[in-house]
Write a protein that binds this DNA or RNA. Structure first.
Lengths: 139, 139
DNA sequence: CGGAATCCGAAAGGATACTG
DNA sequence: CAGTATCCTTTCGGATTCCG
């Protein structure tokens, strides 16, 4: 697919029959961009993990959000959930083929963020400093 | 940079001195993944737009969120804001070099979403159907 | 034309307690 | 171990009103 066709044209096409809110691309993006989705997808990109392993790997996630995020990812088809029939119940989560194919582009973006967060942080500080100066400069 | 180094290792490194919550990558990602950020970045990737043009281009955004999202994008250094000194004030928004460099990976992800939303949608319906069946199956 | 300020409802997300 | 259910706080985002 051509990645560089006119975005505005695509936008207009989408508005033709749907309220822009129903834009399928946005629906998909929203599923990927939750607070924890990206993190968990990256983790599962390495190897399958069990529920408790993920908790320990990402210590500041609440068990509520871990459950919910994994469910959402499973619902969207990125993640499978396999219940191992052992005495203490074990549940393994891993990427599906769909999830693996999405992880490529997602990781590229994560890598960009990793490479450029210093520039972003600098921009933020500049912006905040300018704002503060403008707000109190004449006081 | 090596895009495929161990994510778990990187995670552990980050936890070493920071609360994971302060992870810079996450900070950056959160800025990109707002409800409107991706959409506006794509639009500005075509050419600079004025405030009112963006409103018409994305009709279902409120003026409040358009202002706020543009401000956030400007703060992060992705977008510049140029006030034209004309009689009715005109303000032009466009991508900075940083924003343009980020748009590449972001667009790749949008393209993925565009190519695969049917699969995601199918997965969702399957999941929901299974859930409904499981919930009412045994009476 | 491009905003800022305020108000309010909806949704995301965390803490805690309980279950199989 | 792997959840579910409830409560509560915070954030997101829309509608409206006012300003340079």
């Amino acid at each position: 697919m051509d990645a560089r066709i006119s975005f505005a044209d695509r936008l207009k096409t989408m508005q033709g029959d749907q309220p822009l809110d129903a834009c399928p691309v946005r629906q998909v993006m929203q599923g990927i961009f939750g607070k924890w989705s990206t993190l968990l997808l990256q983790a599962l990109g390495e190897r399958p993990y069990r529920f408790g392993e993920l908790r320990r790997l990402v210590p500041d996630i609440s068990q509520r959000m871990l459950t919910q995020t994994l469910r959402d990812l499973e619902r969207d088809g990125y993640v499978y959930r396999k219940v191992l029939p052992s005495k203490p119940p074990r549940v393994e989560y891993g990427l599906t083929a769909l999830g693996a194919s999405m992880l490529g582009p997602l990781t590229d973006l994560v890598v960009w963020a990793s490479d450029n967060f210093a520039a972003v942080d600098a921009a933020r500080r500049r912006f905040d400093a300018d704002e503060a100066a403008g707000a109190s400069g004449s006081g």
